[in-house]
Design a protein around this nucleic acid. Structure first.
Length: 476
DNA sequence: TTTTGAGTTGTTCGA
DNA sequence: GTCGAACAACTCAAA
């Protein structure tokens, strides 16, 4: 029997795992996960480490064994291949520049040692190089990108038999010893300790979530997805981030549902478009690797960002004085996620109302979101800031009060996450700073004491944000 | 090469 | 309250 190492990365599943399928066909499988260190790739944030910890345990349970290592994969993989007398190594591709460079070197090194190496697509509907404009370049606008993607057929998910798994005795760490679970933060003793109430990491949880979404969330998705007070989004992003389910599996399930029920066609199209934005982000990251750090539109280098650690801290803690923004930021801290609509409002508030650089927001989301994704996170922040591909026009500044009235009409979402406001009635919940004194008093709200005054006044902040873009226009 | 049409998610103003 | 227009040009993609 030939032994094949399967190097798991962002594909922590058995189903529709092409690398694992190839290895299984070849013989015995040695599954390995490496917490990378010293290889130049971006270190995971705290919320992602929490998720990874639990997802690895699930993967280990479903495989039987999982060898876990920490260090530089370029050193560890060849050594492991020699120790296990493995004649093959397989993995599913990553698309950030650092991983691409690393993986190419590892592949060449292993092949030079006579080890067969195979790489597969385990993360995307289409490889970033499979879609190009008529002129032969990468897409920079979403609509034509997705139109071109929809014309290509999506490979059907593959069925993978339960692999015959092996390990090298005495090699590897225990998952529990990786120290992935984030410790307490200053002043916060309970971060990420009760998240299993909200999440079920792992392949089984991913499949259950997909089924629940197709059964209950898809009908009405087109409009209700924007309502943070309703549970109508898919909640699949973290499962997709860690590859506990493949986009192909999601694509197929949603298409099947729409095929059997024409009422769902428009909802399915809208949802698949969201998968499309995930694909587009990877397309951009692959073709423009600097997207992670630098303004995709260089003219935004001229934007006059402010520097204010105190303002950043107030935003992070959900103490801006705008209830919808604060509800979102607190939901993020408490649960490791934030409703998509609220993400846009909260992100817009940071870059436009506070005029703090999108990198600060990107870094905070990277650390606190369980679905923090190397492609979607920076691409979406740049989209909000206006510096990204196909970005919002500069004059589009979300009004946090109007957004609150429109998308959390009863204030139920705000009351859940900003409990000090829960006794406010009517429109006061959306803008306590505009509420009559007796309404505040009746609800037990004392602005500046029980809940902050707004950090900025909307009209003035909007005008200042627009003025800032004059510098960008001048630099363009 | 040139031209043409189109472009995730909004806000504000005035009729 | 509702509706359309303005916001501002610019870039991209395809014909």
């Amino acid at each position: 029997m030939r032994t094949t190492i399967v190097w798991f990365r962002a594909d922590l599943r058995i189903g529709d795992n092409r690398a694992l399928a190839w290895a299984t066909e070849r013989g015995t499988v040695l599954p390995v996960f490496i917490v990378p260190e010293g290889d130049g790739t971006r270190a995971l944030g705290g919320a992602s480490r929490w998720w990874l910890h639990h997802s690895l345990k699930e993967l280990r349970a479903s495989l039987g064994y999982l060898t876990v290592l920490r260090g530089d994969p370029a050193e560890l993989l060849p050594r492991l291949a020699a120790e296990a007398s493995a004649s093959g190594v397989a993995w599913n591709r990553c698309y950030d520049h650092e991983s691409v460079v690393r993986d190419r070197k590892i592949q060449e090194d292993l092949q030079a040692r006579g080890v067969e190496v195979r790489c597969f697509n385990g993360r995307l509907l289409h490889e970033p190089w499979e879609l190009e404009t008529k002129d032969g370049g990468p897409f920079k606008v979403f609509s034509p990108f997705w139109q071109a993607a929809r014309k290509r057929s999506v490979a059907a998910p593959v069925t993978v038999p339960q692999p015959e798994v092996t390990l090298v005795p005495g090699v590897g760490l225990q998952i529990e010893d990786l120290d992935l679970l984030p410790g307490a933060r200053p002043g916060e003793r309970d971060w990420a300790t009760n998240w299993q109430r909200y999440w079920q990491p792992g392949e089984a949880g991913a499949k259950a979530q997909l089924q629940a979404f197709v059964d209950n969330g898809l009908d009405g998705y087109e409009t209700l997805r924007d309502r943070p007070d309703m549970a109508q989004t898919s909640n699949l992003s973290a499962h997709l981030r860690f590859g506990e389910i493949s986009p192909g599996q999601v694509f197929e399930a949603v298409n099947q549902a729409a095929a059997h029920n024409p009422v769902l066609v428009a909802d399915a199209d809208k949802f698949l478009g969201e998968l499309g934005w995930r694909e587009f982000s990877y397309h951009l990251l692959y073709h423009f690797p600097a997207l992670q750090r630098d303004n995709w539109r260089a003219a935004f280098d001229a934007y006059p960002w402010r520097q204010d650690a105190g303002d950043l801290d107030a935003w992070q803690r959900g103490m801006t004085g705008y209830p919808l923004v604060d509800a979102g930021m607190r939901e993020l801290w408490r649960t490791g996620t934030m409703h998509n609509r609220v993400r846009m409002v909260a992100a817009s508030f940071l870059v436009k109302h506070l005029r703090l650089h999108w990198r600060h927001g990107e870094a905070w989301f990277w650390d606190t979101l369980v679905d923090a994704d190397p492609a979607s996170n920076p691409a979406s922040w740049q989209w909000v800031a206006g510096s990204g591909a196909d970005a919002a026009p500069y004059f589009r500044v979300f009004n946090p009060t109007t957004q609150s009235q429109r998308f959390d009409p009863t204030g139920a979402y705000i009351r859940r996450w900003v409990p000090e406001l829960k006794r406010l009635k009517g429109d006061a919940i959306h803008a306590p700073f505009k509420a009559p004194a007796n309404a505040l008093e009746h609800a037990g709200v004392v602005l500046g004491e029980t809940y902050p005054w707004p950090m900025v006044e909307h009209e003035a902040a909007r005008a200042a944000a627009l003025a800032g873009y004059e510098a960008v226009k001048a630099a363009a």
